[in-house]
Design a protein around this nucleic acid. Structure first.
Lengths: 368, 368
DNA sequence: TTGAAAGCGCTAACAC
DNA sequence: GTGTTAGCGCTTTCAA
């Protein structure tokens, strides 16, 4: 591998001059500049990032941890981070934590080792006090999708409660009164806030949140499938479901569909995140926007600003959560499929198609 | 920021000993080890990756370029790369090329600057000769989803032609004879190979590939939507569509659905890639597996093996492409919606629901 | 406008 | 087992 010395020798100048040319310094004669560029080309020379980092004490690397890159939510986030990093002439290092404390710690330590210029951390299983430790020690660390007390100004987050509140209000406005909630089983901020939003919307409209209508599972397609099955198995009436995120909603919809339950005629649904996926579902999923890309951008900006100790630090924008009307919300059927608000309904004479489908699903899924 | 010197001083040993402890060398007394670890903890010290890289002349960084991280296909790929990198105690740098030559070049140059231990490059717009240049100069560079003549053993790829061939054979086996093809507009290897697979399947079964039944667009949801509209606008009969990838298929399905055309009753469909998305669609999309994660893994392995100049270099596995039967393929309707195999059919007396839907779609979309 | 040279923080001989 | 020390490739003073 050629070094700056080789280039200097070939160009007939000193290493300092080569460095100047390669860093765009103006104080170089046209002649030297050309000679250096020519030599660089001939030797196919690239400055060594590590050596430069060492000399400058500034790494030009932004580090980001997410839980799982195959999740489109994080894909979008990291996409935005990479774009923002590039604009700062930085490279992006990504680590995955997979919702496991040990891996999240390894991920953060990896970034620390690289003495990153900015750190965007999505780590949900590390306890608050440990996170606070990190935040105290690493001034440019920024958290995403999480809030640690005392460091609110370094946490990039949306108003999850408001989002879910909006979602449930839409269901209520459509006439629903028996609204189930499929949540995330992770005890993380998003999950809690969204659940609170659901509860608040229900309560403000004088509706109850019976525990039989609330289930929680992994925030994945499979989790959504299990949750929907569980809900049906309980046999309690509901005409609508608010779901933690679009991915779980997709899983749930596939269960309802395959059981002959029509969306939105029999069951209305609302998701959260507004992934591309939401527009691919049939019917297209009504959901809540989640400005992941803006958040990724903002996180990088904030982190960089903290790193530079700017006198007027970057201020986080207000992230917008909005309801996106699509095709999964309709008025509830005039006739509920059961008038029982408790499990185990029996077959009734002259039951409707939907009622029959519900009953069959409940019977099969409850393991009888 | 604390350095190894500070730790040495605090622990009352030399920097060499600190280095030994921190790198797990066995030749250290228990006493020294403990002192060092204690000092490290007190100072919250982390080895500086750049300094280590410089001293060792080995960067412990794997670099990967993809076109767009928000595309779940690449998300899966990078996920696998990160996992593989971690197993080699390496960090992962990701750059995006966005199918633009200039950005792809910047991405590769960025990786070169970091003197990566391994380079996994997905760059489709840089011409072959330039890619060959890179490959010659950087022995550990590995290409993904592309083949450059003379470097086949450093290109990680699946048999796209076979995959698409399998897909189309399934449609033919179901009884289809008028099979449209929605392709990618990018003139890249995958696109060409898959198209070839379609052609070969048709020809081997004595079927023609009329140009009116072939459209191409961006390999995105929007591209799929436009392509399906274009196809309908042409008004030529088809009972099935083979699509370049699942994402485009999702877009196409949404168009057919919204036009009252039923899948698979009116139109059978088959995708490619077997993304999570395929299982979220309604009906679930029959498709072809694309072992992206295995490919990502293999690419990292291969790159690392090339880097180490191993005597017995890593050999690429045979990536499996398989047809995944789901719910979007059925026999064609007994009655085609038109007997005209050319555009602009007129309303016929007593036309079927499907025929009416097709006709309306064609008329509206062809801009009349 | 240029060059010499002192580090940046670490590793890895080498000597003890 | 341990310490000393010469680099690794680059940037950046400081002098010229």
């Amino acid at each position: 591998m050629a070094t700056i010395r080789d280039v200097a020798k070939l160009a007939g100048v000193s290493v300092a001059t080569v460095s100047r040319v390669l860093n765009g310094s103006s104080k170089v004669s046209q002649q030297s500049r050309e000679a250096v560029l020519k030599a660089q080309h001939e030797l196919d020379f690239h400055l060594n990032a590590s050596a430069r980092t060492l000399a400058r004490k500034d790494s030009e690397i932004i580090g980001v941890t997410v839980s799982d890159l195959s999740d489109p939510y994080f894909g979008c986030m990291v996409k935005a981070c990479e774009n923002a990093a590039r604009r700062l002439s930085c490279s992006l290092i990504v680590c995955q934590g997979f919702h496991e404390e040990q891996r999240e710690i390894v991920a953060i330590d990896t970034l620390l080792t690289h003495h990153c210029r900015g750190l965007i951390v999505h780590a949900l299983t590390i306890p608050d006090d440990r996170m606070a430790d990190y935040l105290r020690r690493v001034p440019s660390m920024v958290l995403i999708n999480r809030e640690v007390p005392g460091f609110e100004d370094r946490c990039v987050n949306i108003d999850n409660e408001k989002g879910e509140y909006l979602a449930v209000c839409q269901l209520i406005a459509a006439g629903h009164r028996h609204i189930a909630y499929i949540g995330s089983r992770h005890s993380i901020l998003d999950a809690k806030e969204r659940l609170t939003g659901y509860r608040r919307a229900m309560q403000e409209h004088g509706l109850s949140c019976p525990p039989q209508l609330m289930v929680a599972d992994e925030p994945s397609l499979e989790g959504g499938i299990r949750a929907a099955r569980e809900l049906l198995a309980r046999g309690v009436y509901f005409s609508a479901v608010a779901v933690y995120n679009d991915t779980m909603a997709a899983g749930s919809m596939s269960v309802f569909n395959s059981r002959g339950l029509q969306i939105p005629a029999d069951i209305s649904m609302v998701g959260f995140d507004d992934l591309l996926l939401a527009r691919c579902l049939n019917p297209q999923l009504s959901t809540i926007t989640n400005p992941v890309e803006e958040m990724g951008e903002a996180a990088v900006q904030l982190s960089n600003s903290l790193y530079l100790k700017q006198p007027a630090p970057y201020t986080l924008p207000n992230f917008d959560v909005r309801f996106v009307p699509r095709a999964t919300i309709a008025a509830p059927a005039a006739q509920p499929w059961t008038d029982k608000l408790s499990p185990r309904p029996q077959k009734a004479a002259g039951e409707s198609r939907a009622a029959a489908a519900f009953r069959r699903a409940q019977q099969e899924l409850s393991g009888r």
